[in-house]
Write a protein that binds this DNA or RNA. Sequence first.
DNA 1: TACGCTCAATCAATCGTTTGATTAATTTTG
DNA 2: CAAAATTAATCAAACGATTGATTGAGCGTA
Lengths: 219, 219
Amino acid sequence: MEKDKTDKPDKKDHILDVAERVFSDLGFDGASTRLISGEAGVNMAMLNYYFGSKEGLFLAIFERKISSFQLLLQNIGNDGTMSSWDKLSTSIDKYVDRIIVNNCFQKLINREISMNKRWELTDKITAILMVNVVEIRKILDEGIKNGSFFADIDCEMVIATIFGTKNYILNTPQLSSLILGYDVRDEKLMEEKLKPRIKIYMKRLLKAYLMTDNDYIKQ
Amino acid sequence: MEKDKTDKPDKKDHILDVAERVFSDLGFDGASTRLISGEAGVNMAMLNYYFGSKEGLFLAIFERKISSFQLLLQNIGNDGTMSSWDKLSTSIDKYVDRIIVNNCFQKLINREISMNKRWELTDKITAILMVNVVEIRKILDEGIKNGSFFADIDCEMVIATIFGTKNYILNTPQLSSLILGYDVRDEKLMEEKLKPRIKIYMKRLLKAYLMTDNDYIKQ
DNA sequence: TACGCTCAATCAATCGTTTGATTAATTTTG
DNA sequence: CAAAATTAATCAAACGATTGATTGAGCGTA
């Protein structure tokens, strides 16, 4: 049957899906292999059978995402027909769309990278995230060079704002739900209210900083 | 001797200092009581003697900080002699100064609040952080009311940017060191380069968004 | 003596992992 | 094609190690 070819990868994928959620809820050390296998409905030994070890399972979650991450930055930057601002604006749209889908994974990444252990994994995560950073950076540099953006903007801090604002909302849902006035964990609200709100806000914020004639501001 | 009265609290404080660092490096589950007591140079049983349990030790770290946190927001907002912008500007200065000192604790807080367990603690952390949020919120609202800031700004997202940008840099030091071009974990560099840079950037960013005449931006 | 503190030794529980047996699927062979 | 041989997948049970916590003896001081 054709079921064989579609079911078998689904099983590993199913385990990875469950593990991603459990790890993001409880952290690497807080999530036991017994719990993960239990939630996934598979025997405990299957985790080691498929992924070698708990850490192997953890790494497999990341491996699976890398390719999808690299697609995200498919060269908006190289599109010759767009202005620098349009490139940045489009990047924000795509990024917000993408990142909210991978909510669990984002939490996972940010918690892991904030740890002072598992350096090998931290290095790998850093490398993955840097690709996105470089892409934004390229757009900002180009915008400065062609006069679209002011020359004395702080590019690196702008990047920290783009990623930091989004992370703050998604990684501290309990707090940001209280701040924003609605449950940011609700998928429907997230799609209808949160996503457009972030997009509109980020664009206006950045446009004001990058493009508004604000000479008098500079001290 | 007076040594009793000064040494005993020092010992508990010393344990709390060490635990704060270890927890922030390894996470709650990743840090063992044996490691903490070892690094602190005390017998393992002392942790339970002083704090009852591992979780009690963890909570004690937070209890100790609460008072210092509440001092942070000492009413800049109620100063009648300052403009709304000056209040916001001053708040950013104080916040940046304060937060970088409590680097480890900030990482701890943000990792813990992003977890889907220990709800009681998450609620407590949320309550603590909300105090700061409300304070900024008050200043923004006042600024809108008296015409200093535009009426159609997104207050809540501005708050997310203030806290998010800072968190991004401090909680992912490996990544942000790569982005910024110098080691943000180096205390000297942090004091001389990072702190002023964040302050200047945040003020210019927010001033541009809140106060620049950017009607043409709004879609 | 009495009390607060410190310690090595030890506890049960849980951890990640391994094992050996069993079943299911696939390939090879006659 | 069918039987045999091989491989892959799955399972319950158990492994040694480590976890957070407790114990009871010993310490010094008041």
